[in-house]
Design a protein around this nucleic acid. Structure first.
Lengths: 209, 209
DNA sequence: ACTTTTGCACTGACCAGTCAGTTCAAAAAC
DNA sequence: GTTTTTGAACTGACTGGTCAGTGCAAAAGT
């Protein structure tokens, strides 16, 4: 009785349910944390029965893990796209970095809850999804590191920079600035925030502009 | 019965017990999160009976809240001290910023678990200790903002910088770089990390060093 | 055309276990 | 003699996970 429509991508209905569960889980866990969020809450917010959660995901942890994978995957793709676009347009590595800062801001603007949740979990240890988190983190950071390394190779950046640490610092800059933006000055525009970060990134802080 | 002895220093014995509970709680909560950490675990790690926890703190939440206050208080004092020291030594605002970056790194080096826990909680909403967190956060960030504002006033910094956002970005830079350092390259020296961040801060990234 | 069967997706009451917080008599520390 | 700690027992609420059963749309059988 197997219908052929459910093979690739999953049946529409099931995928829609999973999406609803992702959306419900991401906001609740961002607000309350993983342990403080109950499966009942997630089910209720998503408008499905509790059993449906367990029909779609093996456990609460697995739901969360797949949510992490899904979210960071979106970010990584967006960063790659930004870097490649500037390269195609003949921009330098500074432009690539700037485009990636903007891509990061756009992502956080669109998925603030996911970002929040990700930051809250990233540096924890001894958790079930620790290894998953490391993998997806590395995928995202590697994009930034790649641009920095290319910039060093072309002489655009000093060869004395510490690629790994600088990449982490850049990510942190965007991350914390954006979270502050969404938390405490949500009325400001993305362009506004982007230009402030660009200035900092390009060392146009000292001396009067 | 609550006595007024806890103001400064407090009675030695009780204060020592509280300190042990702080230390036990900070590592456990950093690893597992607040909700996933049980009071029994905290008591056991601290080497005291469960009843002692409730003799010293009204509840699990209160213990955590006082822990947050205590920890951020240490950081704020350290940042202030760094800024004032450079001022006394006749350094400029760039030096003050650099000294604060170092103070931040020293703090994270000494209290990595606390930092971890703080980051994980900072952008959450709807939690019992939310307002406490906002207050102590503002105290710490205000120190950075103050130095930036003074720098703008003296003309050392461009008057086009966005003080609030730049302060957040700087904090994020140090925070994420330091957490990456402790998590993935713990063998590196503080000086090493500090110099990498100094370079980024002073815009010595572009062009060859 | 129509009935019957199949199995996917979903349901929600239920269970076994867990945890914050309480209590208190007695001991230890000061 | 007062303060602080102990430690074990207890409660009541809550939670992750289970499972027998429902609904339904498409396929198979006639």
């Amino acid at each position: 009785m197997e219908s052929s429509s459910a093979t690739a991508g999953g049946s529409t209905r099931r995928e829609a349910t999973r999406q609803k569960l992702y959306e419900a889980a991401v906001t609740l866990i961002a607000e309350q944390g993983f342990s403080a969020t109950t499966v009942d809450e997630i089910a209720e917010r998503a408008g499905v029965a509790k059993g449906t959660v367990y029909y779609n995901f093996a456990s609460k942890s697995v739901l969360f893990e797949e949510l992490l994978r899904h979210g960071v995957g979106l970010l990584t793709a967006s960063l790659r796209e930004a870097a490649e676009r500037t390269a195609a347009e003949g921009g330098g590595k500074v432009d690539a970095l700037d485009a990636m800062v903007r891509a990061g801001l756009v992502f956080i603007d669109r998925y603030p809850a996911f970002t929040q949740l990700y930051v809250a979990e990233l540096w924890r240890t001894n958790r079930a999804w620790q290894s998953t988190l490391m993998v997806v983190r590395q995928e995202a950071v590697a994009v930034v590191e790649g641009v920095l390394r290319e910039g060093v190779a072309t002489g655009e950046f000093s060869d004395e920079i510490d690629v790994q640490l600088t990449a982490a610092a850049l990510v942190g800059m965007v991350l914390v600035a954006a979270l502050d933006w969404k938390s405490f000055q949500p009325e400001r525009s993305l362009d506004d925030v982007h230009s402030a970060l660009s200035r900092l990134l390009q060392g146009r802080v000292s001396g009067q502009g």
